[in-house]
Write a protein that binds this DNA or RNA. Structure first.
Lengths: 169, 169
DNA sequence: GCGTCCGTACTCGGATAATCTCTGTCCGAGTTGCCGAGG
DNA sequence: CCTCGGCAACTCGGACAGAGATTATCCGAGTACGGACGC
């Protein structure tokens, strides 16, 4: 038995967003290229990117030479946005108010009037700390950690897929 | 589609620990009584309490008049301990190092040498903030939020199950 | 030579199975307390 | 009256199904580019 963990699509799309940052909002990158670059399942990655598009993080352009591109400046996209988009911003801890059940069913109104459940409060506070930490990390910060060699390698690979205005007889 | 959330056993056992705090480490409380008090599944709650016992949070005494009791002072048991015991202290975010896969498979050593993955670092930092917040809330703090009427109601209910030295012809 | 039309190839997008964790339930092993018999 | 043995009931503990979410995959709808045709 392992433990609670958030969908691994978060990791995938986070890396993809860093790649998209490298190419700006002008040049769309197909999901198939991103998947091939990182050795991921193309269709499944596409599914995750769709969620990001539905939440307004990236724009999707269909047709030839289409793909995904950042919808906003990279500084304005944070890890919290990614998690919210993929995981549905639902609270990690869902209070079912069991303090008002069983023996205490009759007094639920009285109990709730005496104050909020402290367990739920503590959990929410911890979750706020988590989200706050995530919201302070933008795609720009993440991109700064990629070494130059990898960036160049990516650039060449994507440009090979998009012969945008050069060579080839 | 809902969202990632931690097992609801956390909520159950947290409330149960508050009850156990009320009775101290002297008087064991059966899991069946706790389940009936809060209207929960007796066997499933038992399963969760077993995990707490396995992690040294509570002591389990078998036989008649047995049950569960706190293994440590309530101040020394925090919500972080509960989450770790039930959820297996595994990290929420598991980095699979996809930055070293696909195109970059050949250069994995070089990339890892250039520094840790910033996505993983940010995630770990956020998780640390979460754990830190949880570790600052003890069972004592939670017990302070229970109204007196509920405490008395619980005391009467449990004592009725444990006629410890009084009445009955 | 230029504009228009059509075909093709590529993209995203949603609908469809397989796998795994969590949820819930059951029954067995072990221990304690009680009751009766014996000294 | 005290001690010992057996019985019964209750407890925890782990093994056994079911539901839900995540993971993974496939195929269809739509769009933009490229070339061919007609003017």
């Amino acid at each position: 038995m392992l433990s609670m963990q958030l969908p691994n699509g978060v990791e995938w799309t986070a890396h993809c967003l860093v790649v998209l940052e490298q190419f700006g909002s002008t040049q769309p990158v197909p999901s198939a290229a991103l998947a091939e670059a990182y050795g991921l399942s193309p269709t499944y990655l596409n599914k995750h990117l769709q969620k990001l598009a539905a939440n307004g993080l990236v724009t999707s352009t269909p047709g030839q030479a289409g793909g995904f591109a950042l919808a906003r400046p990279a500084q304005e996209i944070t890890l919290a946005d990614v998690v919210d988009a993929l995981d549905g911003r639902g609270p990690i801890f869902r209070c079912t108010e069991i303090r008002c059940q069983g023996l205490f069913k009759e007094r639920s109104a009285e109990i709730k009037a005496s104050g909020p459940c402290r367990i739920a409060s503590a959990m929410r506070q911890a979750e706020d700390a988590w989200r706050s930490s995530l919201s302070q990390v933008s795609i720009t910060d993440l991109a700064a950690g990629v070494d130059a060699h990898s960036r160049q390698q990516l650039s060449e690979f994507i440009d090979r897929k998009h012969p945008e205005g050069e060579h080839q007889p």
